[in-house]
Design a protein around this nucleic acid. Structure first.
Lengths: 226, 226
DNA sequence: CGGCAGGTGATTGTATACAATAATACAAAA
DNA sequence: TTTTGTATTATTGTATACAATCACCTGCCG
């Protein structure tokens, strides 16, 4: 339990390549590697008990995401998300989550609304209990459900990636009493605006929600997390 | 001539994998394949005179971009950009190009400003001559230079991808007398706002520039392009 | 002592071989 | 006729083998 993370993602968790990809990605995003660590195909392959082939394919994918630098004939090097990247992502996300919420008011189905409310209820429950691990998962789920409800494959794709990239930061912010309570309240407000089909309000609330997270991060000190 | 397209992209055009990737990507984005065309590794490999290995790696990368669907043990299928995707991309781009221009006013260097103006001059020249092929390249270059000037790796990455995705549409819109003149004028205005460090104006102009392109597309009829 | 040439080992790039899986066709039984 | 089981074939998934490239070290020469 606790490895829920891709939900809707089609990323194939069952092929060797898929597992290797997820593994390296997770290791980079969670900071287990340092910047510019060299990722040798053979070494990783041995560690995971697979040959070079799936490792290579995974590294090529990570290169495309910008999480790995590949220098031809030389090797693959870890490319960490920097503090500035995180800031930029949050600013961009604040806008995109806004549009997302706006679009969701137009496209969300009754079923999706119910799912969203269920997630919300669980969030409120676990907020009270201070169960941060579970809360992080529910926070992710809430946003991903909203992404899907926007009915935009493109927006969903971009936002999901960003969401993953700042995973570490989000884990840290959620795990503070003050922020988690506030965050869940804001989720509730966004949900209600979407349910009531108030596009303007939903957009505004979603933007503010992300902005508050930025402020929380800046208060906390980004260096401590990265 | 005419295959300029990646400029700053680090995409390795010299390895077999890189060439295969670019080739398939280009074929998908330019509409040479139909939706759901099955991409067989062996067939592509034979066509390009390479083995399955580089083809596989290329397909895996395209999967991550969403340009190809891979069903495990079954195959890879073309996933075209739909008309709605294009609309979404333009709406999102309009916001992101706005932030990009804003950030550029803060970060652009004198050298980058000169490069930008040079591109602009060439654009104006070729606009007069109605040289649409060249104009398309210069339009791409102008935007890419601005992306870089934003000093945001993240923003640059997202915008560059989007820019590629709507390549076909952009080619079509540029190739209309009215739009190309207007577009170049708008580029000039954006450039001047950036040069004068007027963030507010630059952002507004960049947003409007993309919005105008949407309108042009809608007037043109997206179905004809896709 | 320093710089450069060449060799050596390590690592990636590509091709191929083999294994596993899924699609297809066909035949037999209900 | 329909359905189901099975053999065949095509295709992908993975491993390995081989080629090309690069980094590093050594030793020669200035």
């Amino acid at each position: 339990m606790g490895d829920r993370q891709d939900s809707q993602k089609k990323r194939d968790k069952y092929s060797l390549r898929g597992r290797v990809y997820e593994r390296i990605r997770e290791d980079i995003l969670s900071g287990r590697y340092e910047q510019n660590t060299e990722l040798k195909e053979m070494a990783i392959g041995e560690e995971l008990g697979v040959s070079r082939t799936p490792v290579r394919e995974a590294l090529r994918q990570l290169e495309l995401e910008g999480l790995v630098n590949i220098i031809p004939n030389r090797g693959a090097y870890v490319n960490m998300i920097t503090a500035k990247d995180v800031q930029d992502i949050y600013i961009i996300r604040s806008m995109l989550e806004g549009v997302c919420a706006r679009w969701a008011t137009e496209y969300i189905t009754e079923e999706q609304l119910e799912d969203l409310e269920e997630t919300l209820c669980l969030s409120e429950y676990h907020t009270k209990k201070g169960n941060y691990e579970k809360l992080y998962e529910l926070d992710s789920l809430f946003h991903e459900q909203l992404y899907r409800a926007s009915n935009s494959r493109i927006l969903n794709h971009v936002l999901s990636d960003f969401h993953d990239y700042v995973k570490r930061v989000r884990k840290a912010t959620i795990a503070s009493q003050g922020r988690s309570v506030k965050s869940t309240e804001e989720h509730r407000a966004i949900f209600e605006a979407v349910r009531d089909r108030d596009a303007q309000k939903a957009e505004e609330l979603a933007k503010i929600h992300v902005k508050h997270t930025i402020e929380c991060i800046q208060g906390y000190g980004l260096e401590k997390i990265l």
